[in-house]
């Protein structure tokens, strides 16, 4: 059996909206293996973003247990502080989002190196050019984000997510702002990263074509795993 990257047991996340209690994630249990490429699909409000936020240690669950890289993150009785969550996040995760959130006044290279301003993982790759080459943005490294296409900007965001060599890459609607040709490029890239770098990839998308690039597709409805 392969090593498990993430184990979730009976995860539950509820919110209060006035007197009404909303259950965004309802008793979800799953395992994601190391090097696996999993995509979560489902309609809006199905709880996929809430789930990926919990799996990515951006949010605490209301109840349940979560282990990442064999470390129990949630389920020890008390929620983790923002500082504790940051330590886990920067050690284990890389994130890409629908909006690229590149700093407009920093060059491509500076944007990619930005996470290292705050933290440098000892095992992180020293050769930044290699990473930029792999993502096809080496020649654009001295350009500002405003001079790039949407696909290139998302590639820069991917490079930024990978600069500290994470174990798990979380991609939340990474093609939401891209046309279909650029979406396919990003899908191909995620697949390559998973295959060649053995990176665990967790993808949330509305795009069924993109979801199909994953090893496993999990469909969510009303906060539960539907299939």
């Amino acid at each position: 059996m392969n090593e498990v990257a993430i184990t979730a047991q009976n995860l539950r996340k509820t919110y209060r909206r006035g007197s009404e209690e909303i259950c965004a994630v309802n008793d979800i249990s799953l395992d994601i293996e190391k090097g696996e490429y999993v995509s979560f699909i489902g309609p809006s409000g199905s709880g996929k973003t809430t789930l990926i936020n919990i799996l990515g240690c951006l949010d605490n669950p209301s109840s349940g247990k979560l282990s990442v890289a064999r470390k129990t993150v949630f389920g020890n009785g008390k929620p983790l502080s923002e500082k504790e969550l940051t330590v886990i996040r920067r050690e284990l995760f890389g994130y890409i989002f629908q909006k690229f959130y590149l700093i407009p006044t920093l060059t491509v290279l500076e944007n990619v190196l930005l996470p290292r301003t705050f933290y440098k993982k000892p095992s992180a790759n020293e050769n930044v050019s290699e990473l930029l080459n792999m993502l096809g943005i080496e020649k654009r490294k001295h350009h500002l984000p405003g001079q790039l296409s949407g696909g290139e900007m998302q590639r820069v965001a991917v490079a930024r997510a990978l600069i500290n060599k994470p174990e798990i890459l979380l991609a939340d609607e990474p093609t939401g702002n891209l046309d279909s040709a650029r979406s396919q490029e990003i899908g191909k890239l995620l697949n390559e990263l998973n295959q060649k770098e053995s990176l665990t990839v967790i993808l949330v998308t509305h795009n069924p074509e993109l979801a199909k690039t994953a090893d496993r597709i999990i469909e969510l409805r009303d906060g539960k795993i539907f299939s």
Partner: peptide, 16 residues
């Protein structure tokens, strides 16, 4: 606001 949140998600501590 969003960008600062993203900086925290890529490893920035509150002190940073």
């Amino acid at each position: 606001f969003q960008e600062i949140g993203i900086l925290k998600s890529i490893g920035a501590m509150p002190a940073d």
